[in-house]
Simulated assay, not measured.
Amino acid sequence: MAAEGGFGAAGDREGELQRGAGGIGRTEIRSSTDANQKLKYISLAVLVVQNASLILSIRHVRTLPGDRFFATSAVVMAEILKGATCLLLIFLQKRGNMKHFVLFLYDSIVQQYMDTLKLAVPSLIYTLQNNLQYIAISNLPAATFQVTYQLKILTTAVFSVLMLKKSLSRLQWISLLLLFTGVALVQVEQAGGKQTAGDQNYIVGLAAVILSCLSSGFAGVYFEKILKGSAASVWLRNVQLGLFGTVLGLLGLWYNDGPAVAEQGFFFGYTPMVWTVILNQAFGGLLVAVVVKYADNILKGFATSFSIVVSTVASIYLFGFHLDLLFTVGALLVIGAVYMYSLPRAPTPARLVDEKEAFLPKSNHQSMEKEAILKSWGIFSRWISFAYQAQQAGKTST
């Protein structure tokens, strides 16, 4: 009996220890989940600020009177800074071991040169795209550029279907149609209003943003295809892109602004605000990688649409942008299209049977996010309506 009692007591103590360990484990999992949730929304908030501030700041520095910096030199500096950041992250992954770091780079970039050369094509396109963005923002209002630039969703979808053999849901095709309609309404309003002045050219800006969307769609899909075909990290791929991007950017600088740069200097026209724009552009791509890791497409679409609203409202007060009904309807269609396109596809019946237990919690989570998105869309609509009414009231008073 004593033995049995001892065994029972030991079993009880073991059970208490296991329950205690289980409680500790659950606490750690819960704290880890909470930390990821915080990082998720922090990264999305930063992405909203980055998207809106980049467009607004480029518009600001490119329309200021006085010496104008060379956009080609800014593109080169952004590539250098982005590549340096990725090199630092790889170095930290190697725990600061310089030997392992150098050997890794030599093996990944030099010895596997054919793999590196694959990045020449997207790097060329990204360099072209970055230069086109400066041209577009210099000739279009910030809000118009931000809305029109969402056509990259359409071009990316088309190239994904053609190159990656992806299939789109009916909802995604509808959202693409709404996206195109919204952008068309905005362009009709802009073409009718001709809201450009001075040395700005609406046709040049529109052509630049359309070419930028085409290049963004193709380069993004091509880059995705390369990433899925190898085990290389995103940071290494960005280093490889940066190598080609810097060289190609320098060639573009020499071709477009060579004599002027030789006479006035590489950093001609650089101010603290210009450096802010370059840093913002350099780290924007790296920020997207963090968002993709810790968030999802729904919330990324939320951040993109929110940044459109921020850019529009800020343009009204900073640049005297005139908001009318046609632009408002077009912008809201684009915002709704971004939301709809980022929503997850409905699972097939077979998947429902195979993953019933795993799917139900996820479905509940997705429905909550959909509800939050719809509420946010309503808030955005009221914000734009309020800005429009305030602008009309200002016109009436004057």
Rank of each mutant, 00 (worst) to 15 (best):
E4Q: 09
E4M: 12
F7E: 09
A9D: 15
A10H: 05
G11C: 12
R13A: 14
E14D: 13
L17I: 14
R19K: 13
G20A: 15
G23W: 12
E28M: 07
L39P: 05
K40W: 11
Q50C: 02
L54G: 02
L54F: 02
L54C: 08
S57A: 10
I58D: 01
R59A: 02
R59K: 15
L64W: 11
G66M: 12
R68P: 11
A74Y: 02
V76S: 04
K82H: 04
G83I: 05
C86W: 03
F91V: 03
L92V: 04
R95L: 05
G96W: 01
G96A: 01
N97S: 07
M98A: 04
L103C: 06
Y106T: 15
D107A: 13
V110C: 15
Y113Q: 15
M114V: 14
D115H: 06
L119H: 09
Y126W: 13
L128V: 11
N130G: 10
N130H: 08
N130S: 12
N131W: 09
Q133M: 14
Q133W: 10
T148H: 00
T148S: 01
T148N: 02
Y149K: 03
Y149V: 00
L151T: 11
K152Y: 01
A157R: 03
F159T: 13
L168M: 07
R170E: 11
S175P: 10
L176G: 05
L179A: 13
L179S: 15
T181Q: 13
G182E: 10
A184Y: 06
Q187R: 07
T196M: 12
G198H: 10
I203M: 13
S212F: 01
L214F: 01
S215V: 01
S216F: 03
G217R: 02
A219F: 04
Y222M: 05
Y222C: 14
Y222G: 04
K225G: 02
A231W: 01
V234T: 09
Q240L: 14
Q240S: 07
L241H: 00
L241C: 03
G245M: 10
T246V: 02
L248M: 08
G249M: 10
L251G: 12
W254G: 11
G258K: 07
P259C: 09
F267V: 07
W275M: 11
T276I: 08
V277Q: 05
I278L: 06
L279P: 04
N280Y: 08
A289S: 14
I298M: 08
A303S: 10
S305W: 02
S307P: 02
L323C: 05
F327N: 06
G336A: 12
G336N: 07
M340P: 03
Y341P: 01
L343P: 04
R351M: 01
L352V: 11
E357W: 04
E357T: 12
A358P: 03
L360C: 15
P361I: 04
K362V: 06
Q366A: 05
Q366E: 08
K370F: 09
E371L: 12
L374V: 09
F380K: 07
R382M: 15
A387W: 04
Q392P: 00
K395H: 12
T396E: 05
